[in-house]
Design a protein around this nucleic acid. Structure first.
Lengths: 256, 256
DNA sequence: CGAACTTTTGACCCCATTCAAAGTAGGTGG
DNA sequence: CCACCTACTTTGAATGGGGTCAAAAGTTCG
């Protein structure tokens, strides 16, 4: 866990730099971003539906869900966001497109003024492009998510979600892809996968009985990465992770 | 149909301007965009999977689908794009995020070099922001799409899709929301809605029998907009359409 | 120690898929 | 102009995945 002393901004900048070229100058400016840090307990609405969206959120620690809600109260989680993510970065460009955002567990975040971000974009074009690239990447993840919802069975969706979160969390130095923390309840998983809480439970049972994954409380243990990835039709390449070794696809595991 | 003499670039610029402030200077520069115009018959892959993505596509006429594909050949349409859309604009910022794109009917398009677009962004920051806002808006549509796939029944999904396309096509001056052309086959609708072709047919039959919509060939006739919108839990506000009158939500129809 | 929320399991039902087949365009070549 | 091919549309019957309802057994926390 040597990466853990990276600040959340470091991780954000790291990810930006992977998507778009950033000079030293721009990195410095980004490092100098300052905002109000605060803690929000599980279930807090970070962006009230239809609010003014004058801040964006950098997740320092925890787990947040992006939502779409229906008039009957039902909701669909369209993205899970972890430490180092800025789930609503795109509101800098399109304030009317602010998503509904909620913490799924008690989380620490930093609120960054949209105006400040917009000023950054104007003074440093490379930062603007990097932000745009970040949004585009986020949209690509969303596209996968939609595809899974539309075309895969419950077990497949679950397997895919677990694989994706495994690699993203590993990349954020929050565990290995074989053993990581995913503090999410089964009803919340249901909102993410478009399933009822009951069926989430049955699905996890299946995965457990087949010796693929065990989920205890808020910890995920992957016993057979290869078969899990195969089941979820998971192709890690789209995540564009920095890690050079394609070990995940070969099921070799990754040692810390 | 007085708007029909707008060029596709006009319509694209119009949409950009609705999302982000654009000066006269920028509009002129955008109008001067030049690219190779060409026609592609139905089922043409515009972007080969994993290609270099050195162009983006402006749709002049027709209908294109953005896809996510699985290893077993199954596919999910994640967005439908109409005249005036640039479905892959975000590749200017993130070339690795190029989507799979296919024409659903014979369509006319313009290929714009990515390099040229990128140069535009660098010389005119406001254009960069507008492009980013455009992508963000596109992602918001995708979020709705995902929510529908995850949480709604077949009839509801269908109703929502028809409502969305009705207003978007009307906005693009391709008919009214009560009567518009949607040249898409039932199997393709299935790919969009995450349904089998057979069930698409049954779903359309239901809507027909309840007197909501009739689809003949490539034309959609909405008989009861109010009930259709209600059934699909459709809230037009997210489309951010220019039309001042909120007539659609009151089921009053719109006269040309 | 009780309240509220998760997790787990059972029984039944329904929406959508699957399989199958007939009818209907649209397009091509003879 | 018609024969023919291919793809789309339409309908039926049977199957199955996931939902709904219900209830018990952990957990967490005040």
């Amino acid at each position: 866990m040597s990466l853990n002393d990276f600040s959340p901004i470091d991780r954000f900048v790291l990810r930006l730099g992977r998507l778009s070229p950033l000079g030293l100058r721009e990195r410095e400016v980004l490092q100098d971003l300052r905002g109000r840090i605060f803690q929000a307990e599980a279930g807090t609405d970070l962006i009230a539906r239809g609010s003014h969206a004058d801040h964006v959120h950098l997740i320092v620690e925890g787990l947040c869900g992006r939502f779409a809600q229906f008039s009957d109260g039902e909701r669909q989680i369209t993205a899970l966001h972890i430490a180092g993510d800025v789930p609503d970065l795109h509101t800098v460009a399109a304030r009317s497109a602010a998503p509904s955002l909620q913490t799924l567990v008690t989380s620490t975040l930093i609120r960054l003024p949209v105006d400040q971000m917009a000023a950054l974009v104007r003074s440093h074009p490379a930062i603007g492009e990097a932000f745009w690239a970040y949004s585009a990447f986020d949209a690509m993840l969303l596209e996968r998510w939609a595809a899974n919802l539309g075309r895969r069975t419950a077990v497949q969706r679950m397997a895919h979600l677990l694989c994706e979160m495994a690699l993203r969390l590993e990349d954020a130095a929050h565990g290995t892809c074989r053993d990581f923390a995913l503090p999410i309840t089964q009803p919340q998983l249901g909102d993410a996968l478009g399933l009822t809480p009951v069926h989430v439970n049955r699905t996890l049972k299946m995965l457990r009985e087949q010796g693929l994954v065990t989920i205890t409380g808020r910890r995920v243990l992957v016993h057979d990465w290869t078969r899990l990835a195969e089941l979820g039709d998971f192709d890690p390449s789209y995540l564009l992770l920095g890690g050079a070794s394609p070990a995940h696809s070969r099921g070799e595991g990754v040692t810390a």
